[in-house]
Nucleic acid binder design. Structure first.
Lengths: 136, 136
DNA sequence: TCTATTTAGGTACTTAAATTCCGAAATAGG
DNA sequence: CCTATTTCGGAATTTAAGTACCTAAATAGA
């Protein structure tokens, strides 16, 4: 079984966790509760949120009653930004196989895969945290 | 750096190798030559072609002057078939994160990701080996 | 029939990414 | 202060993909 679109478990956790926090504003949430609500690995979620914290998306507070809360402008953060923090920067227009030199004259996929990558990119870019905190 | 569409090096080798063989018909090609032309790992290519051979896409012949050649109908093979042999069967319509139960009422991506997955799927399905053997 | 060539296929190794573990640091509350 | 809670961050582990290695089997050609 294979997934055509490349989203890591970590990026999924980041998105879902952030949505929960956004919905729960202005109260903060800690990793334990988040993991329970998401039915996810607590340790993994913790690591993911360390990255989000370093990247400035969330503010972390240690100690009892600690946890994570959204930073000021994070409501309007896009999934693309979250995705790139976790899975790495996306570069469009490159060879879909990551090659610099191709054996063939023209790409076997014409520009179909670049077209689709751009589609994914734009979809990721359209999705904002604020969309969800209202939605549910 | 991250690739939005999920294609393994192995699947890439399979496709590119098969195209070379298709172009070179009716002569067969061996792993060494293929690897040189593709600038790729000989051992990896060999493993990939073992899979293709088992799956019936190519016929293998051992010994000197041996190598691989397309099976009768392989000219009209689609990239989807190649992809699934190497990277595994694709299932459309499932949760983009591989979850069975979601915490949220509606999918955060609506059906955007399923739409795109179907797009990729159909693109993979349209691409035939025969398209390339003529093209170049 | 012998030899060199070439794929088959099992196992083991390497590497990178993803995930987990654990001790350290911070802090709220008693 | 002291203690329990919680994040931090480095280290260790696991997993998956890719690579290497080796022996066996097939076969063309001398």
């Amino acid at each position: 079984m294979s997934n055509l679109i490349n989203i890591s478990e970590a990026a999924s956790l980041a998105l879902h966790g952030l949505v929960l926090i956004a919905k729960n504003q202005p109260l903060r949430m800690n990793v334990k509760v988040l993991a329970e609500e998401l039915n996810a690995s607590q340790t993994h979620l913790a690591k993911v949120f360390q990255k989000l914290s370093k990247a400035g998306l969330v503010k972390s507070l240690r100690g009892p009653a600690g946890g994570f809360e959204l930073n000021n402008l994070a409501e309007d953060i896009t999934f693309l930004e979250i995705y790139e923090i976790i899975d790495g920067k996306v570069t469009l227009g490159a060879c879909p196989f990551g090659k610099i030199h191709c054996v063939f004259q023209s790409c076997m996929f014409d520009n179909e895969l670049n077209r689709i990558s751009t589609d994914i990119y734009n979809t990721f870019k359209q999705i904002k945290l604020s969309d969800f905190s209202k939605k549910e």
